[in-house]
């Protein structure tokens, strides 16, 4: 059987500041090793998110100006995105994408920018400070450590039903206060890591690909794909 996955690259032409395209390239790289043909399509301004067309979604981060434009447009995709998420659609959201899935974020200029409230977190801003630097976290369910680079002004606080992607070992994380970094809700994985995140954390790429495969092909056997060895890259 020809295994295929189609990725929605949400606002890839606007939110692409920190090598975000790398996450798509890394997904392709591991997909190929799993004998899966992976394609990706940009879904941007004035376009519908046709959730039935996609097996996986990626939502990157961008500059303040672009994110404000996206925050308005994404309200038209709110219903479809929420449907995708609630129906266990796998998604990876970084920085701005992470913030926009939540209730709202306060920009560095102090404006309150609406998210789509698909996930129950919210984001405040810091005064004249950014969390910048290398970061290591540990995911308590898998025991896996994730390595990355963070660079954000936002301080995100998780809501009910969300759990962090990991506990901060070194670095700042969501808000510099509660030792949490990122968020997991159903099959949605959020993080402030760029670098990009999947380049240094192949296990997470594998997990996303397997979730997408099992959701799309519920009766198939993925033992072979599960055995793919991820070599360290950092």
């Amino acid at each position: 059987m020809n295994l295929k996955l189609n990725v929605a690259h949400l606002y890839g032409d606007l939110l692409n500041t920190y090598g975000d395209i790398g996450n798509i390239l890394v997904l392709e790289y591991y997909a190929k090793q799993m004998n899966v043909e992976l394609t990706s399509e940009i879904v941007s301004l004035d376009q519908q998110f046709e959730e039935s067309k996609f097996d996986l979604a990626f939502f990157g981060g961008g500059q303040d100006y672009e994110q404000v434009i996206v925050s308005k447009d994404i309200q038209n995709k709110k219903e479809a995105l929420t449907f995708f998420i609630e129906n266990d659609g796998p998604m990876l959201a970084i920085c701005g994408g992470y913030q926009l899935l939540g209730e709202y974020y306060i920009s560095a200029k102090g404006e309150k920018i609406a998210g789509i409230n698909a996930l129950p977190h919210y984001t405040k801003s810091q005064d004249n400070n950014r969390f910048i630097g290398d970061i290591i976290i540990k995911n308590s369910e898998t025991g896996q450590e994730y390595h990355g680079f963070e660079n954000h002004n936002g301080m995100t606080f998780l809501g009910n039903g969300e759990r962090p992607l990991g506990t901060v070992i070194s670095g700042h994380g969501n808000n510099g206060e509660d030792k949490s970094e990122g968020a997991i809700y159903k099959n949605v994985f959020c993080s402030y890591f760029h670098g990009p995140i999947l380049a240094r954390n192949g296990e997470l790429a594998k997990r996303l690909l397997l979730l997408a495969l099992k959701r799309k092909y519920p009766t198939s056997d993925f033992t072979q794909q599960e055995q793919l060895e991820i070599k360290p890259t950092y």
Partner: peptide, 18 residues
């Protein structure tokens, strides 16, 4: 044509379309 996806600065400054 359109620019490649990882290109910066693609918004129209007047009406914010791509």
């Amino acid at each position: 044509q359109q620019a490649l996806p990882n290109t910066d600065g693609l918004l129209c400054p007047k009406c914010q379309h791509i």
